[in-house]
Write a protein that binds this DNA or RNA. Structure first.
Length: 272
DNA sequence: TGATATGTTATCTT
DNA sequence: CAAGATAACATATC
């Protein structure tokens, strides 16, 4: 599932391919993509960036595409050459095609989404700012200091730490995979209430959040289930220590419980 | 066949 | 009010 490192990877790859390019035609094939987008052409892709697990495409007409992949949203890009040679394959592969963006140079960007939970919305600046304002701080930003993290936690003393880490309004970008990983690395039981965390534990957690996400981005994210980025797959799943595993790196058998309706693995030896 | 997996949000419950 | 639980959404895969 795309969490922060996966979305960051997708943004980097999209930038390489379509930044500054002109879109001459858009076909909207599914209601998860705002229909009016097809009436905006031509427009230029002025910028692309990530906020939490959301992608934002800044267009040169003052509007924005606000994209959330949720669990199974995918972008796929074909160069003009690939479009010419892969036409049949393209139709077959994209069974859940939701939109096609045709570029001036004959390149083609497609958006498809098997479970149709994701969306592509058309926003003006006000709508965009309103949506982005709801999200918590970016864990990799300078702004997210230890001091700030301590303050944030002190306002949520009764929350279960794992649930809180996954709450996008609290902190942006962590999902079920990286929340579990970071808690293992920091040696903290997922069910702990934030009010019971020592200063030392908060420090460890803060440090590992930044380190883990940066490392995962270096590996172009994790490929689990059917996540894939624009041109292939990341390999960070090979480095995950608790998610989808039976034993922790020290060989202890992991326990599996449910927190907030989501599977959660942890090690009762290493996490207290 | 049915359990499981997933991100987010609305709604119900404690 | 706070916050947890649950359902809902869709579909593939085991």
């Amino acid at each position: 599932m795309p969490e922060l490192p996966e979305v960051e990877t997708i943004v980097e790859q999209l930038k390489k391919r379509i930044l500054g390019k002109n879109v001459v035609k858009v076909e909207v094939l599914d209601s998860i993509v705002d229909k009016p987008i097809s009436k905006l052409t031509p427009f230029r892709i002025k910028n692309i960036y990530r906020r939490a697990k959301t992608l934002v495409f800044e267009l040169d007409n003052g509007r924005y595409l606000f994209v959330h992949l949720r669990m199974t949203g995918h972008f796929h890009y074909l160069t003009a050459q690939q479009v010419a040679s892969d036409k049949e394959k393209l139709v077959k592969v994209h069974r859940f095609l939701a939109a096609k963006f045709y570029f001036e140079d004959d390149g083609l960007l497609t958006y498809n989404d098997i479970r149709r939970f994701g969306f592509v919305k058309l926003f003006d600046k006000k709508q965009l700012e309103k949506e982005l304002a709801k999200l918590g701080p970016e864990p990799l930003s300078e702004e997210f200091t230890l001091k700030m993290f301590i303050e944030m936690l002190s306002k949520k003393k009764n929350s279960v730490i794992k649930t809180l880490l996954m709450d996008q309004h609290f902190l942006a970008g962590l999902g079920n995979i990286y929340a579990q990983e970071v808690l293992y690395l920091a040696g903290i039981m997922p069910l702990r209430r934030t009010g019971t965390l020592s200063l030392e534990e908060i420090k460890e957690l803060h440090r590992h959040i930044k380190e883990l996400l940066e490392l995962a981005i270096k590996h172009k994210g994790s490929t689990v289930d059917n996540y894939a980025h624009v041109d292939g797959s990341g390999n960070f799943q090979n480095y995950l220590v608790v998610y989808g595993r039976d034993k922790c790196p020290k060989g202890h058998v992991l326990k599996k419980i449910e927190i907030g309706g989501r599977g959660t693995s942890y090690c009762s030896e290493c996490q207290k």
